[in-house]
């Protein structure tokens, strides 16, 4: 094993992108026509947004794709000024190899604040003569309307289980890993339609042994991603507030998870809870209120703790 498999097996051609049939067809026709509108790729993690953008650039520009394609990350680059600076620099020079325009891929565009997005909109206008923007985000609704209206929006859906399975099998074959049907199903279940997560799980499982069984999968994913949030929620529901809080601290401090990440996982964990739906929706509503308070700028740890205190109360009656 020398590489991270998600990189090793990242498709280079649009037609190899898994599970986004209609979108891929559209993108391929852009490539054929040699023209491109501004695009927005919306969808959850691991569904092929970045991969599609990269593959499209490679098909469009061939050898010279690196000269005509820049990848920026809105959550990493500090502030819109840095993003704009890089875009300006990149857009200054003409496309290479006879292309009409360059492509600017802006990942996690929904990480930009409203103000930053407004600035981005002006930048898009300024450089649209020789640049096309591909924005990627989890939710298109977090992108301001003027930008949305300038883009063709593609919604990437969670990859279907059977598609993930087929792809995992291909990878396993190439790596000489023997994996049975149950184990594949287990990875798909844990992966929740996220191809990156699924391949990562497979690779971790393969380090345990060349024969991957369902037990190996759960051992592997359990080691890498123990379900701490579910653990915390159950501890709170059992009435042990302090125990739940200790787990919360561990996640926030040691693993550096943000309050927003944790509250989303809490929300998701409720679907699997064994309790009446009327009760469940009360918990969910409360969770939404807490997320609102976090987003509004209050102390996220205090908010999460107040949710845990609420959970500690629920099971009692």
């Amino acid at each position: 094993m020398q590489e991270i498999w998600t990189e090793k097996y990242r498709p280079h051609k649009l037609s190899d992108v898994v599970g986004q049939g209609d979108i891929i067809e559209r993108l391929s026709s852009y490539v054929r026509s040699g023209n491109l509108p501004h695009l927005m790729f919306a969808g959850p993690a691991g569904t092929g947004k970045t991969t599609s953008a990269l593959a499209m650039a490679k098909e469009m520009y061939g050898e010279s794709w690196r000269n005509n394609f820049i990848e920026l990350n809105a959550s990493d680059e500090r502030g819109i000024d840095v993003v704009r600076g890089k875009i300006k620099e990149f857009a200054r020079t003409a496309p290479i190899g006879g292309a009409d325009f360059k492509i600017i891929f802006l990942d996690e565009a929904d990480a930009l604040t409203q103000d930053a997005q407004a600035a981005l909109r002006r930048t898009m206008e300024r450089f649209s003569r020789n640049c096309r923007f591909v924005l990627s985000c989890n939710y298109s609704s977090k992108i301001i309307e003027p930008i949305q209206s300038r883009c063709a929006i593609f919604r990437f859906r969670p990859v279907r289980g059977e598609d993930i399975k087929r792809h995992l099998k291909t990878v396993a074959d190439k790596e000489g890993v023997i994996i049975d049907e149950d184990a594949l199903d287990a990875i798909v279940h844990v992966g929740e339609g996220d191809m990156r997560k699924s391949i990562n799980s497979l690779q971790v499982a393969a380090t345990i042994g060349k024969e991957v069984t369902i037990d190996v999968v759960y051992q592997a994913t359990g080691n890498a991603r123990p379900d701490e949030v579910v653990d915390m929620v159950n501890t709170a529901l059992s009435g042990n507030f302090s125990g739940a809080r200790a787990k919360l601290d561990e996640m926030m401090i040691t693993y550096g998870l943000s309050g927003e990440d944790i509250i989303k996982q809490i929300h998701r964990s409720f679907y699997d809870l064994d309790m009446p739906d009327r009760e469940k929706i009360r918990l969910i509503d409360r969770t939404g209120e807490i997320e609102f308070r976090i987003v509004e700028g209050s102390n996220e740890r205090i908010q999460l703790e107040s949710l845990l205190a609420y959970l500690a109360l629920v099971e009692r009656d």
Binding site: L54, R196, N200, T207
Partner: peptide
């Protein structure tokens, strides 16, 4: 091809193993 945040959450745990 990831952000730092996503790498910390989605890749690092697997890579560590």
């Amino acid at each position: 091809h990831n952000s730092t945040r996503r790498s910390a959450q989605d890749v690092l745990p697997y890579m560590t193993e």
